[in-house]
């Protein structure tokens, strides 16, 4: 195999690509469409210099006032002294100006954040699911622990028909247990480290936010949807949106399984940090019943997740 000529292999690949472009119009069109897609995006987005990856304009604006007076000042001694003095004086004056600007910017940013919060509430009330789907949890609540073996086996036992979707998939324990039953299953996880752990075990864990993935799925695509992990840290409006979306994406005879810890059982620090985030299994049952499911609670022997909600469809899905 060591005699393999890689230049020859490269040439073969390039020739094969040219041949396919000539013979398969669909491929040629696909390539053209893809290149056009990037051209459109690059043209429309490349000039957005102030928007960071999360579009957090306000955080960028908050840094506008920072100035750096510590620049090198030259090498000749006399000139250096003069430059040093000018720099210090400029610095004191610039600092005064920036302090004033900071006060102004701080007030402005606070008001803009208020507007943003109110708009968020308005969007929530209107049932709008934005793209900013990373849960707004805090610290420890952003990283719910992986499910115990008790929870994994219990949830896997409740998985009905496939395909099955696990939100969020974590490191893949639930996905693995369900796939071992021969059910087609994949998980979605937003933490790259957990995705990595899942991929290492060759499990179908896909990267992304749980809500956009659900929104992007086909209606009636899944036989079972498992809600667990990061779902614990979502605010109520996202949870309601999730129930509505899950209802749409479920088959007529589909099932939703919810494995979350009860926020009331959180330790004090976690409870205070997570105030308003996550809901108890009982409330999940209520939400699912409101969405037209026949929901029940099943006791689980795990110390953290003591009850698992199982919801079976009883009425046709309604649009949110």
């Amino acid at each position: 195999m060591s005699e393999l000529d890689l230049k020859q292999v490269s040439a073969e690949i390039e020739a094969d690509a040219d041949k396919r472009r000539r013979q398969d119009r669909e491929i040629a069109q696909l390539e053209h469409d893809i290149e056009q897609a990037w051209a459109d995006i690059a043209e429309s987005e490349s000039c957005l210099h102030v928007i960071d990856e999360d579009g957090d304009f306000l955080n960028q604006a908050a840094n506008l006032a920072s100035l750096d007076p510590h620049v090198p000042i030259g090498s000749r001694r006399g000139l250096r002294g003069v430059k040093w003095l000018v720099r210090k004086l400029s610095y004191w004056y610039a600092r005064f100006l920036t302090d004033q600007f900071n006060v102004f910017a701080g007030v402005l940013i606070r008001h803009l954040r208020n507007v943003e919060t109110r708009l968020g509430r308005l969007e929530g009330a209107a049932g709008y699911l934005g793209d900013g789907t990373v849960p707004a949890g805090f610290g420890v609540l952003d990283s719910p622990p992986e499910p115990s073996s008790e929870v994994v086996s219990h949830v896997a036992g409740l998985a009905g028909s496939g395909p099955c979707l696990v939100l969020s998939g974590g490191k893949g324990a639930i996905v693995e247990a369900i796939s071992q039953q021969g059910i087609s299953v994949h998980g979605v996880e937003q933490d790259p480290d957990r995705v990595l752990a899942g991929l290492r075990r060759r499990l179908d864990i896909r990267a992304g936010g749980v809500l956009p993935h659900l929104v992007g799925a086909e209606n009636g695509e899944f036989g079972t949807i498992v809600l667990t992990g990061f779902v614990e840290t979502l605010p109520l409006r996202d949870l309601v949106g999730m129930v509505n979306q899950a209802s749409l994406k479920l088959k007529k005879t589909g099932r939703i399984v919810v494995a979350v810890a009860d926020p009331a059982a959180r330790a004090r620090v976690e409870a205070e940090l997570g105030s308003g985030l996550g809901i108890s299994p009982v409330t999940w049952r209520h939400l699912l019943e409101q969405a037209g499911f026949d929901a029940s609670l099943e006791p689980c022997s795990d110390s953290r997740i003591t009850e698992i909600v199982v919801a079976q469809r009883t009425a046709p899905p309604s649009r949110p």
């Binding site: 490269s10 690509a17 696909l30 390539e31 893809i34 290149e35």
Partner: peptide, 9 residues
């Protein structure tokens, strides 16, 4: 494998 054409296909 080093290729001289990086068009998607």
């Amino acid at each position: 494998i080093v290729i001289r054409d990086k068009r998607p296909v």
